[in-house]
Design a protein around this nucleic acid. Structure first.
Lengths: 344, 344
DNA sequence: CTGAAAGCGCTTACAG
DNA sequence: CTGAAAGCGCTTACAG
């Protein structure tokens, strides 16, 4: 193995003190009265030999690791992986590394992960939290770690967060269906009390209730096999033949739902209109194309990464909490065309 | 910030030497003549106070970091994100952390990433390499780092790898089209000399050539805007009206291609049959459903992770190279139904 | 088993 | 500016 160059090697090679080298590397040259000429000499030598400070020695010494943990439900979910991709780029530019992991909405796994990341002393945490990790989050912030939540917050805990307006988005989407003449609108969502899911559900409930329409809610478990989810949705739709539109609360529920609708040989939108929370390339190409609530993925990523980098750069721990709520956009497509009566 | 517990604190609290604590933690108790009783006492205390060794001190001291870098084309690509998810889980169980990043098939970005990971002294590298990083890979292995390639290899360089049989998969898929009566089969692929792309192309060329059919190849750039890719595919299909089937070399090319086909109002499979390299949930739900070559994502992940963990666990650097080639599976769906002449 | 010690590579306060 | 020094928390060879 090639010998790693150390700061000592550099000092010796240039006949300067390693203090000077360290100051130059860390941009403290001017502040520490090191001449520009020496600084340049050091920096160009570093460049030349391809020196890289040992990350572990730095981490051990400074307690800062330039690493951020990102914990989401499922890193292979298109929504989360798109966000991960954008954050990675932004973080990389500022010399931060991101460690991704999937919580599977399992609070025990999430606790274990936080524990492991604490051992690694990552500087900050970006989390789409499952319920049940309130104490661990409190522990993190109490110990001075920077935490930013996104996609959802947790009840009873005040933390920096970036979310979309789930309530209004859902409310508007359901209203759009009502205005297009749909009367018996079902919502199929997760059996979960996560805040973002609760808000989507409330938006739906408000809209149908205000319109004097019944609410038809079906909830399925997160860990359900897809086959089972499809079966449950089929049974639900069969049991409520009056349903003429359905609002799916997430992408993966919609995947099962679209399969159920196909299995039941229902036509979209003639027999049943469809709207989904979260957009996907696929919905544009689906026959018919599917109306979806698009989250501003780029903006979410930027807000989260800017927020956490700003917090990490600040010398004193912030005592106030930043909450950003972003709007979504309803992508209107053919699965929600105005209702034509008598199925013509 | 809560004071971190160190190995010194533990030694003091238990009135034992920190040597003993270290041995117990690292499972060297028996080997170092530490009594089982003492070992248990130490371990249960560690459990009780939630001690976690400082990762950076360990890394600095041992030179091992328990981190693996994973570099893929695009972490938000469904194929790569699914693999990332599976690897993360497997690695996590063995106490390894994975650092993901996207190369964008850009060799300069990839070099920078490798450089950064070297600074972090990650133990191993899992890479779906872009062309042009042969020297960097050679540098890594020369310096004793463990490298496993997947999805593709690089010409003229012998490294551990896990890939699928791109040539045979493509050859068989095109033969399937030929057997179903399609005569003018086009392939739309990347303008890239990456090995896996070259193999897919060669499989196609062999199949059509052997059948005495013409080859109709269209290549588009990786970084093309999707709108531009769609336009190019439309122009290509318009310019070759005889095409009755098309083989897309990747998912994202197929996304553009399906849009082009739709824009041209061509019916699948009556006007044009479709087959795609890489499967996706979406193809099952597409109307009509799309035939695809499915890579064994689970097995690829397992093979890669097992290979790298085995190599990392081995005390002596392996001098031989492991190459694993896995078969794919053709998922036959409605986009390649046997051709009906005269468009009836 | 203990205990003192060295050393991984860095940062930083300090005396000159 | 230099140079010696301490210390981050760990692992490990060594003498007892």
């Amino acid at each position: 193995m090639k010998k790693k160059i150390t700061i000592d090697d550099i000092a010796r090679a240039l006949n300067v003190s390693k203090t000077a080298v360290s100051f130059a590397i860390n941009g403290k040259a001017s502040e520490k009265l090191i001449s520009v000429e020496l600084e340049n000499r050091i920096m160009s030598y570093i460049e030349e030999v391809g020196y890289r400070p040992n990350h572990f020695a730095q981490g051990l010494r400074t307690g800062k690791t330039k690493m951020i943990a990102m914990m989401v439900e499922d890193i292979s979910d298109p929504f989360f992986s798109a966000i991960a991709r954008l954050m990675e780029e932004a973080a990389y530019k500022r010399e931060y590394k991101i460690l991704y992991s999937s919580t599977e909405n399992d609070h025990q796994k999430t606790r274990d992960l936080i524990d492991a990341y604490r051992g690694m002393q990552v500087d900050g945490y970006i989390i789409a939290p499952p319920l049940g990790i309130e104490n661990e989050l409190k522990g993190l912030t109490d110990d001075g770690y920077t935490v930013v939540l996104f996609d959802r917050t947790l009840p009873g805990i005040e933390l920096n967060s970036v979310v979309v307006d789930n309530y209004t988005s859902s409310y508007s989407a359901v209203n759009y269906l009502l205005n297009n003449g749909y009367e018996n609108i079902a919502m199929i969502t997760l059996l979960s009390e996560q805040i973002q899911m609760a808000e989507r559900r409330l938006g739906y409930l408000s809209a149908v209730t205000e319109a004097g329409r019944p609410y038809l809610l079906k909830r399925i478990a997160y860990h359900d096999q897809q086959e089972h989810a499809i079966f449950e949705i089929e049974e639900f739709l069969k049991a409520h033949q009056q349903i003429d539109a359905v609002f799916f609360a997430t992408n993966y529920i919609a995947d099962s739902g679209l399969e159920a609708i196909r299995n039941l040989m229902l036509q979209i939108p003639d027999d049943i209109a469809v709207i989904v929370f979260d957009d996907d390339n696929f919905y544009r190409l689906h026959t018919p194309s599917i109306t979806a609530i698009a989250q501003p993925i780029k903006e979410i990523s930027e807000q989260v990464i800017n927020m956490i980098l700003k917090l990490l750069a600040s010398p004193v721990p912030a005592r106030s909490v930043n909450s950003i709520v972003l709007p979504t956009k309803l992508m209107i497509r053919n699965s929600t065309l105005p209702k034509v009566s008598n199925k013509n």
